[in-house]
């Protein structure tokens, strides 16, 4: 069903939290330079699956992942893979804007600094500017780069977090309900931004808003009770779902 190259492919992925079976044998192929959204009711496993893609689940002691997740045909759960390197390649934006208690500049420069991406201050300045531009925050922030990031408004903070994520030059951007803590205007700005990011990254977004999924994404995956129920072109899923459960969800009967 795809013409674009596959960026992420998951086969037979199961996730357990202790004894709880959170994700049940999920198979999915996600294309590059596209926005893919995961939808589904709360607790359906969409965020859990997203966090498997950059191995954020490693930070939870009781969490266990089986199956294969490949990025660019490389198994990210291979023993040789360092999650640190992986996460530089697969950036993440979280539900609540979580800027560090540092200046705007340092927030963006943090990733490039730890990964040693800039050889000098000039290069770092360049990365910061470019990232802030990409996140559509440059115009608002360029005169206050040394002010704390926590002083920005909620929507600006979330764009700062996006700038922070793109600063490490990731190839994949994971967004975990990035607008759920924002007001409608800020949400619209972020959605527009996601639309622009599409051209450079493989974007995967988890959202509880079906409207948002239909607005921003090319492909949509519907999760229910840990299973991937249906996956396909967004327009197709929302107009002509093939599974009964998907239909119930998008028409508001379950959720």
């Amino acid at each position: 069903m795809t013409k674009l190259p596959i960026k992420i492919s998951a086969k037979n992925v199961d996730v357990f939290y202790g004894a709880a079976h959170a994700i049940k044998s999920v198979d999915v192929e996600i294309a590059d330079k596209m926005v893919t959204s995961f939808i589904g009711p709360s607790g359906c496993g969409k965020s859990t699956f997203l966090r498997c893609i950059n191995r954020m689940n490693d930070t939870i002691d009781v969490c266990r992942v089986t199956g294969d997740i490949m990025i660019d045909m490389e198994d990210i759960y291979d023993r040789r893979v360092d999650p640190v390197q992986l996460r530089a390649k697969v950036g993440m934006v979280f539900q609540k804007p979580n800027p560090f208690p540092k200046s705007i500049y340092d927030n963006v420069a943090y990733g490039p600094k730890i990964h040693g991406m800039a050889r000098n201050k000039l290069e770092l300045d360049e990365i910061v500017e470019k990232s802030l531009r990409r996140a559509a925050l440059w115009d608002e922030a360029k005169d206050r780069l040394q002010e704390p990031g926590t002083g920005l408004s909620g929507g600006q903070q979330q764009r700062l977090c996006i700038a922070r994520a793109v600063a490490t030059e990731p190839e994949v951007l994971l967004m975990d309900e990035p607008c759920s803590a924002l007001d409608p205007i800020a949400t619209a700005q972020i959605e527009q931004l996601i639309d622009e990011l599409r051209s450079s990254y493989c974007v995967v977004i988890v959202t509880h808003s079906m409207a948002q999924a239909s607005r921003v994404s090319d492909r949509t995956a519907f999760f229910h009770l840990g299973e991937l129920v249906e996956y396909g072109y967004t327009s197709h899923i929302f107009t002509n779902p093939s599974d009964k459960r998907t239909e119930s969800y998008i028409t508001g009967r379950i959720g």
Binding site: T59, R87, M92, F94, N98, F100, A165
Partner: peptide, 15 residues
């Protein structure tokens, strides 16, 4: 210190 702060940093690939 909120967990979100740690997640933000780990998510960027910090050790």
């Amino acid at each position: 210190v909120p967990q979100a702060m740690r997640d933000g940093s780990l998510g960027l690939g910090a050790t």
